[in-house]
């Protein structure tokens, strides 16, 4: 019964990852406190939250790399606590600030993990070459990793996941410390993975990036998931409305006409010819029609898409954190 309920709650059929009441205690402190979530195949799912909110601990439990205190998680139908090898065979993990053996070349580093994965020799070479080409490191394949920049190391980590042909890619803070261009390239690679049907779990506190690539996000706080859903859903929940449209127009009775558009919850008059509307959906076409219909002169029409940044700031502003905890 409870299984059906959880599926119904998360609105997912056949989730590849499903957690129920997942909890991790360190002595008396609780790092992850009874969280539930489900992630669908080829979805990009974002884990958000301040440092020490329990994101990395959750990831490590999914990989069977740390003990589960109570509750359970299933990854691709396997229990990571009992069958960690099957889980790790199918899941790729790029840890926060990934490290490589500096004295070895990029190819040698990948060859070592490929051997640990149990790939045959011929298969190994082909996959390594293809993976390095995908992430744009083919030219430095024979260079020692010691000479690599932060962005190159992250891409090498992603190449490892590509080489593994992982069904799920778990990326922990993959873009922190990257320059804007490297970040851009990296997000592009994540998009490609998604297009291939790989489920991506992305932990980050770079909110705008998460918003750009993630289908759904979960907001962690003090070991709990406090919000979960798509960005517009969260915006409605936290900000009260999804869209804020600013109109700059001249004409009689514009404020009244704008307020009559269906879906608009509020119209503020900012100046003589400037209005701010709050709406549940994108009401720009309706606003334009309303202004023109009233013989007004429309000068500007802009929309503030609900930003994760605003949601995040508003959420933590409304509910001040009760004591900061740090992950062990």
């Amino acid at each position: 019964m409870s299984e059906q309920q959880t599926e119904a709650n998360s609105g997912l059929h056949d989730p590849v990852i499903r957690a129920r009441g997942l909890t991790r205690r360190y002595g008396k402190s609780i790092a992850v406190d009874s969280i539930d979530f489900g992630i669908a195949r080829s979805e990009v799912f974002g884990l958000l939250g301040p440092n020490g909110a329990g994101k990395t601990t959750t990831i490590l439990m999914m990989l069977g790399l740390t003990e589960i205190s109570s509750g359970e998680v299933s990854v691709l139908g396997f229990n990571p606590a009992r069958e960690p090898l099957k889980v790790k065979q199918r899941v790729g993990y790029l840890p926060d600030a990934v490290g490589f053996y500096d004295q070895l070349t990029a190819v040698e580093n990948l060859a070592y993990t490929a051997k640990l994965m149990g790939l045959a020799r011929a298969e190994r070479a082909a996959r390594i070459e293809a993976a390095l080409a995908r992430v744009g490191l083919a030219e430095v394949a024979e260079k020692r990793v010691a000479t690599f920049s932060r962005g190159m190391r992250q891409r090498l980590g992603l190449a490892e996941i590509i080489m593994k042909r992982a069904e799920i890619a778990i990326l922990d803070e993959p873009t922190s410390g990257l320059d804007p261009q490297a970040t851009q390239e990296f997000l592009g690679l994540i998009g490609e993975l998604k297009a291939e049907g790989v489920t991506v779990l992305l932990s980050s506190h770079m909110l705008d990036q998460v918003q750009r690539v993630c289908d759904r996000v979960a907001l962690f706080r003090n070991g709990r998931i406090v919000l979960m859903g798509t960005v517009p859903e969260l915006a409605v929940k936290v900000l009260g409305a999804g869209f804020v449209v600013e109109v700059e127009a001249e004409g009689p009775g514009i404020a009244r006409r704008l307020a009559m558009i269906p879906g608009v919850t509020q119209v503020e008059t900012l100046a003589a010819d400037r209005y701010r509307m709050t709406a549940e959906r994108d009401v720009r076409p309706d606003a334009a029609r309303a202004v023109v219909a009233g013989d007004g002169a429309l000068r500007r029409l802009s929309v503030d898409e609900p930003s994760l940044e605003a949601i995040y700031a508003r959420y933590f502003q409304d509910q001040p954190a009760g004591g900061v905890r740090h992950a062990a």
């Binding site: 490590l60 990989l63 790399l65 960690p84 090898l85 099957k86 790790k88 065979q89 899941v91 790729g92 993990y93 790029l94 840890p95 600030a97 990934v98 490290g99 490589f100 053996y101 500096d102 993990t113 640990l116 994965m117 149990g118 980590g157 490892e160």
Partner: peptide
């Protein structure tokens, strides 16, 4: 210290 531990242990080995 080289931060290779979690990457290696995420491979299918104990």
């Amino acid at each position: 210290n080289r931060r290779t531990m979690s990457r290696i242990l995420a491979q299918p080995i104990y």
